[in-house]
Amino acid sequence: MLTTRHGVRPLGAADLDAFLALARRDPVVNVFADYRATTTNLEPRWLGGEMWGRFEAGELAAACHVGANLVPIGASVDDAAAFAERALARGRTVSTIVGPQDAVRTFWNGVASAWGQPREARWDQPHLELAAGPLVAPDPLVRRTTREDMHELYPACVAMYTEEVGVSPEYGGGADLYRARVTQLVNRGWSFARFDDTGRLVFKAEVACATPYAAQIQGVFVPADRRGLGLATAGMAAVVQLVRREIAPVVSLYVNDWNTSARRVYERVGFYETARFATVMF
């Protein structure tokens, strides 16, 4: 087994079983990495990057997804520091560092001097889970979206992304790619929304990734003029019910610590904190 300094090397298809065993030590927190591994077989051409592994005594001890997103998996502080040293040798190619707070902080401290000023760093993001039915009544009008809904759904996705991230997903010519991503989620049955009597979208959410163990929610959105009416609470309850019945038994998401209104919604539905994430965006 060829390894580099500190026992770090890129993983491949032959490492898939060992990687999945590592990720599934915490299958909800690591749902993104598990999903990426099982859908790409750890082949770089499908990953759009690499999956690094750190080995101790010949055993896989930690990993790091390095694509558009850099995500530490099962990484201790020492593991994250070793991944940072490898990352320094290749320069920054990622747009986001995201994952468990301590690992992200350690990694960032290791590369900050060379990777430049981030656009934003969010150091306190509660990671929430729900492995039971919602605590409030689901909105019966929430349903899966179809391609016929794209005229309402796509602008809502752009608005949510822009509000959340601070830059439009269409910036720099990204509209076609982002529309393809939204369409892909619709085709998978991973996009949910509620429409009012006029056909206007008033709530939406998507499943970002899923495994047999968990599904991670993203893109929760209510238009600004419809907030405070309980649409998000009842809508999320419906999404939880649908996802747990048809996709995965545990529903997860992470939220900015300062977003008190969103946190109240998730608490009412029944979500509880299981970890802290952090995100550094470029």
Score class of each variant (00 low, 15 high):
79 D>Y: 07
261 S>V: 14
160 M>W: 07
42 L>E: 00
246 E>G: 07
24 R>Q: 11
245 R>I: 03
25 R>N: 13
230 G>S: 00
101 Q>H: 14
254 Y>E: 03
42 L>Y: 00
103 A>P: 15
91 G>W: 11
30 N>K: 02
8 V>E: 02
105 R>P: 10
106 T>P: 14
276 R>H: 05
14 A>T: 05
133 G>V: 02
272 Y>A: 04
62 A>H: 13
186 V>M: 14
196 D>L: 02
241 Q>Y: 06
97 I>N: 01
263 R>G: 09
266 Y>F: 05
83 F>V: 15
144 R>P: 06
279 T>V: 14
266 Y>C: 02
126 P>S: 11
17 D>S: 14
128 L>S: 12
49 G>T: 04
68 A>I: 13
49 G>R: 05
84 A>W: 08
171 Y>C: 07
207 V>W: 06
211 T>N: 12
220 V>C: 02
255 V>K: 07
122 R>A: 10
269 V>L: 08
115 W>F: 13
88 L>I: 03
57 A>K: 00
164 E>A: 09
36 R>V: 13
175 A>R: 15
282 F>T: 06
95 S>Y: 03
273 E>L: 01
160 M>R: 00
105 R>C: 15
155 P>I: 11
61 A>V: 14
239 V>L: 04
268 R>V: 00
261 S>G: 11
77 V>F: 06
255 V>I: 14
137 A>K: 11
183 T>Y: 09
250 V>R: 01
53 G>Q: 06
269 V>H: 13
221 F>L: 05
143 R>F: 04
228 G>D: 11
27 P>T: 01
93 T>V: 07
99 G>E: 11
151 H>N: 06
49 G>D: 07
20 L>R: 04
